[in-house]
Design a binder for these strands. Structure first.
Lengths: 195, 195
DNA sequence: CTTTCGATTTGACATTTTTCGAAACATCGA
DNA sequence: TCGATGTTTCGAAAAATGTCAAATCGAAAG
């Protein structure tokens, strides 16, 4: 069984489980071992002879494979017969296909991480200390700024200037940028928040 | 592109290719990166912010993923947009299912490796220097010995003893063992090779 | 043209992984 | 019981990998 003690809660596939699986496959000797076992079950010494490795090393590799659920072992006399677990291969093959699982496994994309970083850099005590030159970052700041306008409300130009002025002295540039970014719309002297 | 320069000859899947693939997946950070990219393409800095790693490290991981064919990169302005290569995932998912590939990748089971090792240990200048006590090894030696009898030919007991005697003085024990192992059959005083 | 910014490469360091010999187990044969 | 045999565990050395800071590269902004 592939490490049931750290099963993930409730449908969220455990990243650790997949990780063990891929780690087990991420080694040439272990791939060869699986290739051998794909033909038929075998005892340690046979694998040792086939790969020119020490018994200790082969035993180690088999342990890794066993913990990944890729092989199973039966004791026969003084021997240990290792066998490929094809079910596990099929299961992980399916797992690989469903990208949804990967997505959940890593958690949802932290949509705000980049934004937060930018705002951290450009905000001091709630005020903008600069206007990013980079388009991507500027957009972040502008979206943040637009968030301080109420939706469904119409502003006179002086009101717009005052709102922006709370965060930066250059309300003139910023107001223009907000318009260009289509975050604010204007009709005559009246402004309102868009989107 | 997944390293086309070391494509394996003629249908035999390259073990190295699979190895790169699994190595790329055998790391928690890289799994997370794939999880993020499963949602949507992203630039390096976004991933950096999401994983709390240095840009250098993220860049390194992305290189590994790219060489495994798992992601592709497009240059957009000064940014680099990384995208998940779902085709590659599907392809390897299929690959994983076909154990035949694994089998070929590692080469056929060297059926004689263990046998050769045993015979190496018990043969000196073409003669048996002992009779293995272990069942498995003894069977190897007996099969080898039986190979020196012609099929479809009937031997008198004296002939059997002479043949065995070429390889070991204790033809008596060995003859009995060959019978017990059902490699030789006897009817009255006449022997013949079986199987 | 110079500066800035995002991305990559390089060099160094710490951690992990692979490997083997020696010792410990466990089972079988005598 | 004892000795032999196959396997596993332990300890240590060697190799590979992950990480970051600093240097470098390339494109965009001023």
């Amino acid at each position: 069984m592939p490490s049931p003690q750290r099963a993930a809660p409730d449908g969220v596939p455990d990243l650790t489980d997949s990780l063990d699986f891929f780690k087990a496959l991420a080694n040439p000797q272990r791939l060869k071992i699986l290739g051998l076992l794909a033909s038929r079950p075998a005892v340690v010494e046979e694998i040792t002879a086939a790969l020119a490795l020490s018994p200790a090393t082969v035993s180690h590799h088999l342990r890794v494979l066993r913990q990944a659920g890729l092989v199973s072992a039966r004791s026969d006399q003084q021997y240990r017969l290792y066998e490929l677990e094809e079910r596990r291969l099929r299961q992980m093959s399916r797992e690989l296909l469903r990208l949804e699982n990967l997505r959940l496994g890593a958690g949802p994309f932290p949509e705000g991480a980049f934004e937060r970083k930018v705002l951290d850099a450009f905000l001091r005590r709630g005020r903008l200390v600069g206007i990013p030159a980079q388009r991507k970052k500027r957009e972040v700041v502008l979206r943040w700024l637009a968030g301080h306008f109420e939706t469904e409300r119409r502003y006179k130009e002086a009101e717009v200037n005052r709102v922006i002025g709370r965060y930066h002295e250059d309300y003139c540039t910023l107001r223009r940028e907000l318009i260009m970014a289509k975050l604010l719309a204007r009709d005559g002297g009246v402004y309102w928040r868009k989107s």
